[in-house]
Design a protein around this nucleic acid. Structure first.
Ligand SMILES: Nc1ccn([C@H]2C[C@H](O)[C@@H](COP(=O)(O)OP(=O)(O)OP(=O)(O)O)O2)c(=O)n1
Ligand SMILES: [Mg+2]
Ligand SMILES: [Mg+2]
Length: 1021
DNA sequence: ATCCTCCCCTAC
DNA sequence: TAAGGTAGGGGAGGAT
């Protein structure tokens, strides 16, 4: 079904307007992205041929409408400003023109476009020059009017809200200027993502990009520090600094220390002494891996602090850093009356609200503080279905907000629109990336003046191992105060420090300490300290993990401690289970990792990506490749493995995402190639990426919402070309080396070849071509906003009762024996857990010897991009009979048999099953298999065979009937295992997205009906 | 067992 | 309007 949708989607390009009338009918309803694909085929005139506009700020008619108008009249629209490509800048409001360069350019009022169309010719612009911003208020009013009056019912398959009266009028004019042959030569570019400026412009504004870049830089910096230094010298210096500081503000420092510390770990002096013992052992020369003292430092509301340090007027006010100015209504959601879009939007907000439920509490608290706002604040956004609340919503994200703002429930990453609801008086300051970097540098320099044992975490945050710089004559608190003081005096911004015996405790202590404080946790108090922490405050416990834990009825670290290590590892995996087990006890064995070697370099953009045709993609990929190569060179590496990542609008997502120019709900695709030799040549990379791109199945370029290029298997670039003999010979004689050589196995010559390319062979050379191989290709797709598995649901205790006694016995045995298997949990209200694996022992079931599997094959449907599965064309139409006892069937054979599609059980030929001796339950059969591993194998093959196109109804029904029989025979374990398999196999495949969900739903229904309303615990899958 | 591949998840 | 990047940990399963 989903396959059908996808297919239909691909047919968009075939959709053409049969008559002008039809076109204008549609046009009259609304111009919108949704119909862009069709409209672009319906070029109305060539009036604006050679005209390329960029729209800046709010306009009337809206940017959307102008875009449509210009394009259907043969002009071009540039989403992003570029001097070379833009002929006219359109704006209604000069103050809205933010880009400095724009001020020097010609800025024209939107009415120039409208009037020109009405007159059927391009009017001179001098009457339309935007001289000042006087039209601002007018614009706003008309804008609102146009939108409210032009409301239309708009769903996904229909046009959306109308454009202004003006443009309606214009349409009638359009007929005259209509040019019949225009279809073919419609100009490219819905929004020109392919513009060379786009990449750099995006990155110059992307805070997350800066964050990632700086992090990488500081990690690199820290690992280049020579840590073999004279420690005694260091200590002397530090001692002196501390003495100076103490004398300069003898009373203050104490006060500050206690302010935070007293809360919990009071026994400061004794604690310090206990700690300070460790440096003594350090002095013996060998590093004591235990009893380390770790300090975590983090700037307080970093971006805001930087902004505010010179702005005394903002102190004490709620302040946030964001792109949005926060005062103006964004157009996108105002126009968006589409129910679906709104639904997605609200759903997303619900997600946030859910995730940050703690903030809700804060928000309520804040509402008491500011009574006038309580109404707004208490108005839960989820219930704000009404247009008004959605309308004013800015989807700009807050990078950082200060602690005053946080009292209103704001947090980093929150949308501006939401923030304004919570805190209408929020003050907004713009980004100042240069300053952040500068402050960051001061921070790291300061840290390095104390120790080189620096583990860089981000531009505003690092751990330092202070064990070696502690002394008997000053305390850890003294040290922290000194460091913090230095940082503040150098940067003008405050920071906080957490100190503990390991990374975990130090990190969590910082949270307590914030803002502008420090907190020390003595090793002896670690258990108490951690016990009270909320689970999601554990680093590494994010949204998903937290939700899983909540489903297990675990709320606090104390709760978590009640779960045994084996059980945790069973549910979350070996490492994650261990992590949870240890973290909730305050144990963290991670070292302070200073050294660092990068393993991958990538560049991706998932914002503002809108392509009109594949040529745009090509140009963009080229630009992105250049960007990646730039980064490779900066890191002095080249790579052998290239991965192209792509986001593609999910079939069920609206064209226009709720976040302005965002990617919305997407299917993710990734495909990779391994080169024979490492490269850092952008031509090679982009060419290869385009190959990968074109090999994606079912792609509509207009639905591409994001692109990324990642380079892995890195090896260093040899700066100096070592002239060596046989280089060219090597090239010639070994052009097609085996493809799977690991990077580290690459020998010198390859490096040299690369360098020669870069320096002396400007364009694609033969050698370069040869670098590429087609090997090792694979395709995946993953769904972006991943499945929301059925709500926290678990088996009731009634399930336990319903189980055969044998099963229960087994359960207990299993528990005693092996606890490393999957399990089904029980409703939170009850405490029992059922080890599903113990219900039936697969090994016993595996004894089945001669059960036949009957498979009915459909005719083969061409499948693209099923990974690696080189299928012979062989088309098995007849029933195939496989003897199950023939375990030694070559795998290839099996694949052939299951090449595609329908697996139908011929029930009349079913042989009697062998009953497992533990149970008197009749084992359901799936394609002749009863033993779960066998069933899984078959299912896996089946799913693989139709990964891209999705399963057929018949197969789903067959699967369901099997599952139903499993449930009836109380074999929930198998059901669980199959769900797990299904999820893992299909999670990245769009064609399965809804099907998988509906299958789970159906399963839950069946379980629910047979187990008295209980549901399977599937969220842990 | 141990590796490798293809994801998801987390953090800033 | 708005700029939803990026590196690394880790799980699951299959290959070796
Ligand atoms: N979702 C996020 C989180 C952080 N940042 C940026 C802005 C922050 O200022 C900076 C540092 O992140 P922190 O987590 O340290 O947050 P702050 O420093 O802002 O506040 P805190 O006092 O909690 O550390 O990273 C961001 O842009 N988007
Ligand atoms: Mg910070
Ligand atoms: Mg930080």
């Amino acid at each position: 079904m989903a396959a059908g949708k996808r297919k239909a989607h691909n047919n968009v390009t075939e959709y053409a307007w049969d008559s002008r009338d039809e076109y204008f009918d549609v046009k009259a309803v609304k111009l919108d992205d949704q119909y862009l694909a069709e409209q672009k085929k319906a070029l109305v005139s060539n009036l604006f041929h050679g005209v390329s506009i960029h729209i800046n700020g709010y306009t009337n008619p809206s940017a959307e409408v102008l875009k449509q108008l210009i394009m259907i009249h043969g002009g071009n629209f540039q989403q992003y400003y570029s001097k070379s490509r833009v002929t006219h800048i359109i704006a209604s409001n000069l103050p809205d023109v933010k880009i400095k360069d724009l001020k020097k350019e010609i800025v024209v009022k939107p009415s120039w476009i409208v009037d020109s169309i009405q007159n059927g010719k391009i009017l001179p612009i001098y009457n339309y020059l935007l001289v000042d911003g006087r039209s601002a208020s007018q614009t706003k009013i008309q804008f609102t009017e146009a939108n409210s009056s032009g409301k239309n019912k708009n769903n996904n398959t229909n046009c959306n809200s109308s454009c202004s009266n003006n443009s309606t009028t214009v349409k009638s004019q359009n007929i005259k200027t209509d040019s019949p042959k225009a279809k073919e030569k419609f100009p490219p570019g819905i929004a020109n993502t392919a513009d060379p400026e786009f990449v750099s412009q995006f990155y110059s504004r992307s805070r997350l990009h800066y964050l990632a870049t700086w992090k990488s830089e500081w990690k690199n910096y820290a690992s280049t520090l020579d840590r073999n230094i004279d420690l005694d010298n260091r200590r002397d210096e530090i001692r002196q600094r501390i003495i100076d500081l103490k004398s300069s503000r003898s009373s203050t420092i104490k006060h500050e220390n206690h302010e935070v510390t007293v809360k919990e770990e009071h026994l400061q002096s004794s604690a310090d002494q206990a700690i300070i013992e460790s440096p003594n052992s350090q002095n013996t020369g060998r590093k004591n891996l235990f009893n380390r003292v770790v300090m975590h430092l983090d700037m307080d509301s970093f971006f805001v602090s930087v902004a505010i340090r010179d702005r005394a007027d903002l102190r004490g006010l709620p302040v946030a850093v964001t792109h949005s100015k926060g005062k103006i209504k964004p157009a996108n959601l105002q126009n968006a009356d589409k129910l679906q879009e709104k639904a997605e939007f609200i759903q997303e907000m619900a997600h946030w609200e859910d995730y940050h439920s703690k903030d809700k509490v804060k928000a309520e608290k804040a509402s008491h503080d500011s009574p006038s706002k309580s109404n707004k604040i208490n108005n839960n956004f989820i219930s704000a279905n009404d247009k008004e609340s959605v309308e004013q919503f800015s989807t700009s994200e807050i990078a950082s907000c200060n602690y005053v703002a946080r009292r209103y429930g704001l947090h980093n990453g929150m949308f501006m629109g939401r923030a304004l609801q919570l805190c209408p008086h929020l003050r907004v300051v713009p980004y100042e990336f240069d300053k952040y970097k500068e402050v960051s540098k001061l921070l790291y320099n300061t840290l390095a003046s104390y120790t080189f044992e620096i583990m860089a975490i981000s531009c505003d945050e690092a751990y330092i191992d202070v064990t070696d710089i502690l002394q008997d004559d000053y305390t850890i608190q003294d040290l922290a105060s000194s460091i913090r003081h230095d940082i503040e005096s150098k940067t003008g911004c405050t920071c906080s420090a957490g100190i503990g015996p390991n990374l975990l405790i130090a990190r969590m202590a910082t949270r307590i300490a914030k803002p502008n404080g420090q907190h020390y946790v003595d090793p002896a108090n670690v258990l108490t300290f951690v016990a009270n922490q909320s689970l999601k405050d554990l680093p590494g416990v994010g949204y998903r993990l937290h939700r899983k834990l909540k489903d297990l009825n675990v709320e606090t670290c104390q709760d978590l401690r009640k779960i045994s290590l084996p059980v945790l590892q069973k549910d979350f995996g070996t490492k994650t289970g261990l992590m949870l087990y240890q973290y909730c006890r305050g144990i963290d064995e991670r070292p302070v990792q200073v050294d660092h070697e990068r393993k991958s370099v990538s560049a991706e953009i998932n914002y503002g990506i809108r392509f009109a045709e594949s040529k745009d993609v090509e140009v963009f990929v080229k630009n992105l490749s250049v960007e990646v190569v730039k980064r490779l060179k900066e890191a002095s590496v080249k790579g052998k493995s290239i991965t192209l990542k792509m986001k593609h609008r999910s079939p069920d997502a609206s064209i226009k995402p709720w976040k302005y120019l965002g990617h919305g709900k997407c299917d993710n695709y990734a495909k990779s190639t391994t080169l024979t030799r490492p490269t850092c040549d952008s031509d090679i990379i982009s060419k290869e990426c385009m190959k990968l791109f074109y090999s994606f199945a079912s792609i509509n370029v207009q639905d591409v919402r994001g692109m990324g290029i990642q380079i892995q298997r890195l090896s260093p670039i040899d700066e100096d070309v070592k002239g060596s003999q046989g280089l060219l010979n090597f090239i010639k004689s070994v052009p097609q080396v085996e493809e799977n050589v690991k990077a580290h196995e690459q020998i010198e010559p390859s490096d040299q070849i690369e360098v020669i390319h870069d320096q002396s062979i400007p364009t694609t050379s033969i050698v370069k071509q040869e670098e590429i191989t087609d090997s090792n290709r694979h395709i995946e797709a993953q769904n972006d906003e991943s499945f929301d598995l059925p709500s926290p649901s678990q088996l009731d205790h009634s399930v336990l009762d319903a189980l055969p006694k044998e099963m229960r016995l087994k359960i207990e045995q299993k528990y005693a024996k092996m606890s490393s298997e999957a399990q089904i949990k029980v409703e939170p209200s009850t405490s029992a857990t059922i080890d599903t694996n113990s219900s039936i022992d697969p090994i016993n079931l595996g004894a089945i010897a001669d059960v036949y599997r009957h498979i009915n094959y459909n005719e083969e449907i061409p499948r693209k991009n099923v990974k690696q599965r080189k299928k012979p064309k062989r088309n098995i139409k007849n029933k195939f009979r496989r003897n199950k006892s023939d375990q030694s069937i070559p795998k290839e054979n099996k694949e052939d048999k299951l090449d595609r599609d329908i697996i139908v059980l011929d029930s009349t030929e079913r042989k009697p099953k062998i009953l497992p001796d533990q149970t008197n339950v009749i084992e359901p059969e799936f394609c002749g298999a009863t033993e779960i591993n066998e069933v899984k194998k078959i299912m896996a093959e089946w799913v693989d065979a139709c990964l891209d196109v999705g399963p057929t109804e018949t197969d789903i029904e067959y699967l369901m009937s099997y599952v139903e029989r499993c449930i009836s025979s109380k074999n929930l374990e198998n059901v669980w295992l199959l769900c797990k398999l299904l999820k893992r196999k299909t999670v990245a495949h769009a064609a399965w997205y809804q099907i998988f969900t509906s299958i789970l739903d159906r399963i839950q229904d069946i379980v629910s009906s047979q187990y008295d309303g209980s549901r399977l615990k599937l969220s842990i899958l």
